[in-house]
């Protein structure tokens, strides 16, 4: 009994970051669709723009940027909302959005999980820079066409609308996205194509929340962290002992590396550039 509990606690501990971010992601989805008795709904609108706790406006800076480029006039509420969101991600790190907020992340993570379970090897290799290309395209197209170009297909708000009205027209696209990640390209969408992720990457370029290798001498050298990372290249400098922390803004702060690492070599830290003894993580090649 006690040992079963202990094993469960250990299992929970091994998935603590995953559980935390799944909880937040699900709570955010529910906040938009569930009415709490007495209180009503916590969040109104959708991830383009929303009103939280009946007072706090939040606006997606990427959607607003498209709108402004398409020729929209400035509007106070939307600007305040976008400033709050942009400020948060610029300070802590942009792609926190991807791992902790975006509902599509659950879909693509599920696709990857199934892919690994069924041991599917076939993979269409894409450049990770394609998403930046798509980002530039979305912005240029907004200027040319006068409409919010990415919002014509953006699966993030599409998913929210489908949930709210349980319509099925957009489900085919979401299903296609799932199948693409599942069968065609490993981490194809979030790792290579999504311009929203690219936008947040650039927005959070100087983000201060970082995976840090302070206790590097505790590392057992298994390199498991790299295997579970959705953007493995970000850990490379740390592993090659060239950096103390993950500074590449592709890092989504999902904590997969922290969950995986049993040695405690890595931690998530607010990093203001303070110096400390750095020895890097020895990775032993087998």
């Amino acid at each position: 009994m006690a040992s079963a509990l202990k094993r469960m606690a250990a299992a929970l501990n091994r998935h603590r970051w995953l559980l935390m971010r799944r909880t937040l992601q699900i709570l955010i989805v529910l906040a938009f669709i569930v009415d709490i008795p007495e209180l009503g709904r916590i969040a109104h609108g959708n991830l383009s723009s929303s009103l939280w706790f009946w007072n706090v406006p939040l606006t997606d800076p990427f959607v607003l940027l498209q709108s402004l480029l398409a020729g929209a006039p400035l509007a106070k509420t939307a600007l305040i909302g976008a400033a709050i969101v942009a400020g948060f991600y610029a300070f802590f790190g942009g792609r926190i959005y991807c791992s902790w907020v975006c509902p599509i992340n659950m879909l693509t993570d599920a696709a990857l999980w199934l892919r690994q379970k069924l041991n599917i090897k076939g993979n269409l290799t894409l450049s990770r820079e394609l998403r930046s290309v798509l980002l530039v395209m979305a912005l240029v197209l907004s200027v040319i066409t006068g409409t919010l170009a990415w919002e014509i297909i953006n699966p993030i708000t599409l998913l929210q609308r489908e949930l709210m009205w349980t319509s099925s027209a957009g489900l085919t696209f979401l299903a296609a996205l799932f199948l693409f990640d599942f069968l065609v390209s490993r981490r194809g969408w979030c790792g290579h194509l999504c311009p929203v992720g690219a936008f947040y990457k650039y927005l959070g370029h100087y983000g201060r929340l970082r995976v840090t290798a302070l206790k590097s001498d505790a590392c057992a050298g298994c390199s498991d962290c790299i295997k579970v990372c959705p953007e493995p290249h970000v850990l490379a400098p740390v592993v090659a002992q060239k950096a103390l922390a993950v500074t590449d803004s592709d890092c989504t702060r999902c904590g997969a590396c922290l969950d995986k690492c049993s040695s405690g070599a890595l931690s998530m830290k607010l990093d203001f550039g303070g110096k400390s003894a750095f020895r890097g993580i020895p990775i032993v090649k087998s």
């Binding site: 109104h44 609108g45 959708n46 383009s48 723009s49 929303s50 009103l51 606006t59 997606d60 959607v63 607003l64 709108s67 398409a70 020729g71 929209a72 006039p73 509007a75 939307a78 907004s142 006068g146 409409t147 919010l148 919002e151 708000t157 609308r161 709210m164």
Partner: peptide, 14 residues
Amino acid sequence: AFDSTCIRCGLCVK
């Protein structure tokens, strides 16, 4: 102008 200004948030709907 509506097409470029509306950010498809649905706050009016709500």
